[in-house]
Design a protein around this nucleic acid. Sequence first.
DNA 1: GCAAAAGTGTTGTGTCTACACCCATGT
DNA 2: ACATGGGTGTAGACACAACACTTTTGC
Lengths: 230, 230
Amino acid sequence: MTEEPARATHVSLAAVFQVRAGGLQTLLWRRAEAPYEGDWALPGGYLAAYETLEASIRRHLTHKVDVGEVAHLEQLTTISEPGRHPAEWQLATAYLGLVASDVDPAVPSDTGWHPVESLPPLAFDHREIVLAARERLRAKLSYTNIGFALAPPEFTLSELRDLYVAALGHEVTATNLQRVLVRRGVLEPTGTRRESGPVGGRPPALFQFKRPELEVTDQFAVLRPPEASS
Amino acid sequence: MTEEPARATHVSLAAVFQVRAGGLQTLLWRRAEAPYEGDWALPGGYLAAYETLEASIRRHLTHKVDVGEVAHLEQLTTISEPGRHPAEWQLATAYLGLVASDVDPAVPSDTGWHPVESLPPLAFDHREIVLAARERLRAKLSYTNIGFALAPPEFTLSELRDLYVAALGHEVTATNLQRVLVRRGVLEPTGTRRESGPVGGRPPALFQFKRPELEVTDQFAVLRPPEASS
DNA sequence: GCAAAAGTGTTGTGTCTACACCCATGT
DNA sequence: ACATGGGTGTAGACACAACACTTTTGC
């Protein structure tokens, strides 16, 4: 086996989500060149020599948003269908990125946020990637503390509920959300309250996530190991 | 941007698991060349031009086991640390493969099964891959029907329990395993029974998995959508 | 009859949803 | 007072683990 192995080009891509205007939105930029000229596409680009995939996607995201704003980044999958790029043999590794709802990063003029519910036509297989990323987010909201990456440092339970509603796409009650997340030790009250709004109402307590790193909080759905009886 | 993008080599690798001799084992082959000459390594190899990653790993596995024996194959992750191969810039996409316990595929002389509990020193980052693959399997045993890929077409509940015990690494009772899997509609009785063994005992009923494709069976651990009340 | 293996009945526990009710504020 | 939004109390549903008990076989 002394022959040279084949070498594809490799790009990193990210579906970066933020809850804006009550809905889950993703960052897209408008392609200026063929193929798919004029279509919207996910941020990303070629992997540089001896660069890590995660470093690559962070570098490319820098051109679209301040990377410091990305509160969570995780690899989704690598796609290799040879027909996915019409002109070259290219692999793509897709990431899921999350931006907290309290920041509004400056983005270039060719770049903007789009609701995942009503995506424009996307270049390549980017639509599938966005939808797969949303599924990953929805699943992880159920069994991890990943909500920390969507939320500001402090928030009321109503605000957190609105983030969950936007991401999950169905109703969530603040009452039960609180109980689940506090019971699991994911959320804790800061001890302070916010002032009432102009129309009155009881001043809400402020909460924060205990740990701003991804943690699995509901590990064994079933088939748990037996109780340590002695 | 008319300059040529960098091109790494790319390999596909698989941690192929089978329950053998009461334990979870993985398929390894002994490297004949540097680097890591003489160490054990995961099956896999270079991606060919215009080849899909999944096609690539299936092709490479053909040299080690009959691919028809691999009941389930799923992508785990793509690793890109530039130092992972001492001599070249190489990316690797790792897969998890499962082989049912009733087959004993012929393997070449440089290849063999090794208990995951006591792995020999492995080449590259292959040890981490094997352990990550086992974690994926353990998690999916809890919330999907992935057991179908470890089990023969028909089996008794004791036999299935032994497979779960080997994969999960902790005790499982046949009683509760049956109730969980039947309640979820994953398992069904075939209606036939096996004969008693030489030492007696009630003849066990035979069961089968309803669907031999991966299915999520415990989708919403929590934060379920509200009941459709009308 | 007795040991062995399989299978069922039953109880208790923990986690969740749903919903009624109470609390604190502005006007 | 009363509207508004926040928060608590509580009951019921459900899925699960644990374990006692029964069934069916070989010897």
